[in-house]
Computed example of a mutant assay.
Amino acid sequence: MTMSTASSSQSRKAKHCSELLGTGPSIDELVPALSLLGERLARILPAHLSPFAGGEPPLVRIGMPMDCNLASINADIETLASHTLMAVGPKGLPMLAIFEAPSVLRLIDRAFGGRGVEPEQIPDSFPLSAELLLGRLEQALAEALTTTFGGKEEHKVRAMRRDTSLRYLDPFDKREDLLQISLEVEEPGVEPWSFSIAFPQPTLAAATAVPRHPVRRKARQGTPDPAAEPYGSMPVPVTAVLVDMTVAFSRLSSLKPGDVLPVAIARSVPLQIDGRTVATGTIGEVEDRVAVQIQQAF
């Protein structure tokens, strides 16, 4: 038997995706990118949610990015929830939207003329009216995310399928590292409702085009120097958001001394000026005082 080998000029170089080689942005690098994306989404989403709020754009608040995986998401959900697998762009990069039953059922109650009150007993499955509402919510979120990502065809977000079981939905590997943000929708006179979105690292990196080594451009001639007067001594309030949590109004109304509220500290703490994230860092200690070490600034 004769064997032959191809010459080096005919051989092809192996191509490896950046995710397998570990050359994509890390979770820590993606946190500030998700913070900025969340702020843009908070400005774009209200117009898409106005049909669910009596025609008036509601106020949308974005929580801190939290690292998680499918197992931790499942463990944090105490009641019935709908999970929607969504895809970004022609490559179908996956992401996950989570709508918990209390919020969905409050919206259903309002749609039928109620005051947005959830039932005392959460059902084991969603009624048909809730399934129809979830479809409308998914479409509104997909349109808002498409605009947030850039609005072009390669940024288009679409809902693929939904299930109340993460196991059966199987959106991505259960051990995959994710970044999750919660969105709270506030309207005058009614209890806020919320949902959340979870992104795998490759999806978020592609959607936000995170640079690995950003280059700071030199200031143009004549640009005011922020370190010079009169700017240098101007006090600017900076807020470090250690914990951002959503608590049901019924839980708040029943709080009493001695109660314990479990909280999760984010991997990266955002520093904000007037609600806009300007940097992220990690919590530490300097001379017996709590301190934040800056990891990313933009």
Rank of each mutant, 00 (worst) to 15 (best):
T164M: 14
L169T: 01
F126L: 09
R162K: 03
M160Y: 14
T146M: 05
M160D: 14
E120T: 07
E154K: 10
P123E: 06
T164E: 05
L178S: 08
G150C: 14
E176N: 15
D170H: 05
D124V: 08
S165G: 08
Q139T: 08
L132E: 15
E153N: 14
E153P: 02
D173L: 14
S129T: 06
L137T: 02
A130D: 01
R162D: 02
T146W: 01
S125L: 05
D170C: 09
A130N: 10
Q180A: 07
I122Y: 08
D170F: 10
E143A: 03
K152A: 12
E120R: 08
E118T: 14
P127A: 02
R175N: 09
A142M: 04
E120K: 12
K174D: 13
F172A: 13
G150K: 05
T164H: 11
A159G: 14
E120C: 00
T147A: 10
L179M: 00
R161D: 13
F172H: 12
R158Y: 10
Q121Y: 11
P171T: 11
G135A: 01
E154V: 08
L137F: 01
K152T: 07
Y168W: 11
S129V: 12
Q139D: 06
R158E: 10
L145F: 07
L166I: 10
G135N: 00
S125M: 15
D173C: 02
L145R: 02
E118I: 06
K152H: 13
H155G: 06
A130W: 00
D124N: 12
R167H: 13
M160F: 07
E154D: 09
T148C: 07
K156I: 03
M160H: 11
A159D: 09
A144I: 05
I122G: 01
E153Q: 08
A144N: 07
R162S: 14
P123F: 14
R136P: 01
P127K: 10
F172K: 05
A144G: 01
D177Q: 15
T164D: 13
A159K: 06
K156S: 13
F126Y: 15
P127M: 04
K174M: 10
M160K: 12
A142D: 00
K156N: 00
F126S: 12
L145T: 00
G151A: 01
P171G: 02
L166V: 01
E120V: 08
E138A: 13
K174L: 07
Q180V: 13
E118A: 15
R175M: 11
R167I: 13
P127V: 00
L166R: 05
L132A: 14
A130M: 05
D177Y: 11
R167W: 04
G151M: 03
G151Y: 04
E138Q: 11
G151S: 07
G150E: 09
